[in-house]
Computed example of a mutant assay.
Amino acid sequence: MELLEKKIEEDRITLVRQGISMGMDYEKYRDLVHHLVDTKQTTGLPQSEANIEYTQLNDRRMKRWDKTFRLPETVAQKVSNIPSRLKFLVLTESWCGDAAHSMPIMNKMAETNPNMEFKVLLRDENPELMDAFLTNGSRSIPKLVVFDADLNEIIAEWGPRPSIATQMANDFKATHGTFTPEFKQDLQVWYNKNKGEDILNDLVGLLPLE
């Protein structure tokens, strides 16, 4: 059993390393989303009207977060002092509302430390990698993988939502069976009121801070 688990982890590490080498940086991802908005398209399949509208909405959300979110000075100082070469690899799609709130914060963290790198891949174009990092058997996004290039190890995974939002979603689904448009709207209101604090706390907890 230990040999099998070791082989599975080695395969995951290989996929992550490949994903990092192929991934786009955050600026390129933002340019892609801008282009999709201009051409009324979305990433992934299907090219539905709903997903096109979500992409347009998420572009505005990310623009707002990019402009307004700031790391607290104490957090920025700790993150900037991490000596390890850490790679953030995120699987997402442009229509994903949860990703629009969390990815700008991931990017702010990565920008704080020159040893850190943030790369983005589209889920539907990378099914093998996605299937190596399922959440409760589902291809839930965004999915963040934190890779330590010095140790050649996957040191953390995160996603698709911060801890409080995850509990909200689990409770609603347990009661109602599926997410309604009203719940999705309530979740977006929560993200805005929380101001990224829960996302930031979750992400900081993944890192090897001294």
Results as ranks from 00 to 15, higher is better:
N113D: 09
P104G: 09
Q185G: 09
T112P: 00
M109H: 02
N107E: 15
N107P: 03
L187F: 13
N113E: 07
V120R: 03
R139N: 15
V145F: 03
D171Q: 11
A99D: 07
D124R: 05
D131P: 06
V120D: 05
I154Q: 07
V146W: 10
N170V: 11
D171P: 00
K108C: 01
A156H: 11
E117M: 09
G137A: 07
F133N: 06
H176G: 04
K143M: 12
K195S: 09
D148M: 08
P127S: 08
F133E: 02
H101I: 01
G196H: 02
V189D: 11
L151Y: 00
P104M: 07
I141N: 13
P162W: 07
D98M: 05
K143Y: 09
R123E: 05
K143H: 08
E153G: 05
D150W: 05
R139E: 10
D124Y: 08
N152C: 08
K193G: 01
A132V: 07
T178W: 07
G137W: 08
T112S: 06
K193C: 02
E111K: 15
V145D: 01
Q188I: 11
K193H: 14
D124K: 05
V120C: 07
M109S: 03
D131T: 01
M106R: 00
Y191M: 02
I164D: 03
E153S: 12
F147A: 06
Q185V: 00
T175M: 12
K143F: 09
P181L: 04
L122W: 00
K143P: 11
M109W: 01
I105A: 04
E111A: 14
T178E: 15
P142E: 05
S140G: 14
E111S: 13
A165N: 09
N136A: 11
R139H: 15
N113Y: 03
Q185W: 01
D198R: 06
G196K: 02
Q188G: 12
A149T: 01
E182K: 11
L187H: 05
Q167K: 14
P114M: 07
S163R: 15
V189K: 14
N107Y: 12
E182H: 02
D171L: 03
P114Q: 11
T166N: 08
K184T: 05
T166M: 14
A149V: 02
K108W: 01
D148T: 05
P104W: 03
I105V: 13
Q185Y: 06
A99L: 07
M106H: 02
A100Q: 14
M168Y: 15
V145Q: 03
W158E: 07
E153A: 14
H176R: 08
D171N: 14
L144R: 04
T166E: 13
M109F: 02
M168K: 13
D148H: 06
E111V: 13
N152I: 08
T112F: 00
T135H: 07
T180I: 06
R123W: 02
F179V: 03
I141R: 12
R123H: 06
L144W: 05
K195V: 02
A110F: 00
G196T: 03
I154C: 09
P181F: 05
F172A: 10
N194I: 02
S102N: 09
A156E: 10
F172K: 10
S138E: 06
K108G: 00
N136H: 12
M130P: 01
A99Q: 04
W190N: 04
V120Y: 04
R161N: 01
N107T: 04
A156T: 11
F172H: 14
T166L: 11
V146A: 12
